[in-house]
Lab assay of single mutants.
Amino acid sequence: ELKPWIEKTVKRVLGFSEPTVVTAALNCVGKGMDKKKAADHLKPFLDDSTLRFVDKLFEAVEEGRSSR
Rank of each mutant, 00 (worst) to 15 (best):
K11I: 09
A25S: 01
T20G: 10
K3Y: 09
E63R: 12
V22K: 03
K36T: 10
L42K: 02
D34P: 05
I6W: 00
R68H: 06
R12W: 05
E18T: 03
K56S: 12
R52Y: 15
R52T: 14
L2H: 01
P44K: 08
D34M: 01
L42F: 03
K8T: 09
P19K: 08
E7Q: 05
E62V: 08
D34Q: 04
G30K: 15
S49C: 09
R68F: 03
K11M: 10
P19E: 10
L51C: 12
T20R: 12
D55L: 00
P44E: 09
R52G: 13
P19G: 06
R65H: 03
A39F: 12
K36N: 10
A24V: 08
P19S: 06
P44H: 06
K56V: 10
K56T: 08
A60V: 10
P19D: 10
S17W: 06
T20I: 08
E1T: 04
T9H: 09
D47A: 15
S49F: 08
S17A: 14
A60R: 14
C28A: 10
E7L: 05
G32W: 08
D48Y: 04
T20C: 05
G30T: 15
K3A: 02
V13N: 00
P4G: 15
A39K: 07
L42I: 02
R68G: 12
K35R: 09
L57A: 08
E18I: 06
V54W: 01
K43H: 11
E63D: 11
S17C: 13
P4N: 14
N27D: 14
D55S: 07
S67K: 13
G64P: 09
V10R: 00
D55F: 00
D55H: 04
K37C: 11
A38Q: 03
E18D: 15
S17L: 13
V54A: 06
L42A: 03
R12H: 13
F16M: 07
V21N: 00
L26F: 05
R68L: 15
V21M: 01
V10M: 13
E63S: 10
G32M: 07
W5R: 12
R12Y: 05
E59P: 08
L2I: 10
V61R: 06
V21W: 06
V22A: 04
E62Q: 10
T9A: 12
L14Y: 02
E59S: 09
T50D: 00
L57I: 15
R12S: 14
E7G: 03
C28Q: 00
G32K: 11
F16C: 13
I6A: 00
E7T: 10
S49N: 14
K43R: 13
E63Y: 09
T9W: 03
M33S: 03
D55P: 07
A60L: 12
E7P: 00
A39D: 02
L2P: 00
D40Y: 08
A25G: 00
M33P: 00
D40Q: 09
S67Q: 14
T20K: 12
W5L: 15
A24T: 09
K36M: 09
K35V: 03
P19N: 06
G32F: 05
K43S: 06
F53Y: 02
T9Y: 13
D48P: 02
K43C: 02
C28R: 00
K11Y: 07
A25K: 00
W5K: 13
T50V: 04
E62S: 09
A39N: 11
E62N: 10
L51E: 15
T9M: 13
V21F: 09
T50E: 05
R65T: 12
A39M: 09
E1N: 09
H41T: 13
V61K: 02
K56P: 04
P44Q: 10
A24W: 02
A60G: 12
A24R: 05
V54Y: 00
A24L: 07
V22G: 00
E7A: 11
D48T: 10
F45T: 06
V54I: 01
F45R: 03
A24G: 01
V61I: 13
V13T: 08
L42C: 02
H41Y: 15
L57C: 12
V61F: 09
A38G: 03
N27S: 11
V61W: 04
S67E: 08
V10S: 02
P44M: 04
A38S: 06
N27R: 08
K3Q: 00
I6Y: 01
L57D: 06
K8G: 03
V21A: 05
G64L: 14
E7W: 03
P19W: 04
P19L: 02
D40N: 06
K8I: 00
V22T: 05
L51T: 14
S66H: 11
R65K: 15
V10G: 00
V13L: 14
K11L: 09
E62P: 08
E18F: 04
T50C: 07
E63W: 06
L2W: 08
D55Y: 02
K37P: 00
V61E: 03
D40W: 08
F53S: 05
F16V: 08
T50L: 02
G30Q: 15
P44I: 07
V22P: 03
A38L: 03
R65I: 12
D40L: 07
K56D: 14
L26S: 03
K35T: 02
L14P: 01
V21P: 03
H41Q: 08
K37S: 13
V29F: 05
E59W: 04
L46G: 03
V61L: 10
A39R: 06
D55Q: 03
E1R: 02
V10H: 00
D40S: 10
L26H: 04
H41S: 11
R68E: 13
K36E: 11
V54M: 03
V10E: 02
L57E: 07
D47I: 09
P44R: 10
K3I: 10
V54D: 06
D55I: 00
S66R: 13
S67P: 14
L26V: 07
G30P: 00
L57K: 05
N27F: 03
S67R: 12
V54C: 02
C28Y: 01
K37M: 13
P44T: 09
M33Q: 05
K36L: 06
W5M: 15
F45M: 09
F45Q: 02
D40I: 11
S49L: 13
A60D: 07
R68T: 11
L42S: 03
K43Y: 13
L42T: 01
E1G: 05
P44F: 01
E63T: 09
D48C: 06
S67C: 11
S17H: 11
S66Y: 07
K36S: 11
M33R: 04
D55N: 06
A60H: 15
D34S: 11
L26K: 07
E62L: 06
T9Q: 12
R12C: 02
K36Q: 10
D48V: 05
E62A: 09
H41P: 03
H41A: 13
E18Q: 10
R65V: 08
I6L: 05
E62Y: 06
F16E: 12
T23C: 09
C28L: 05
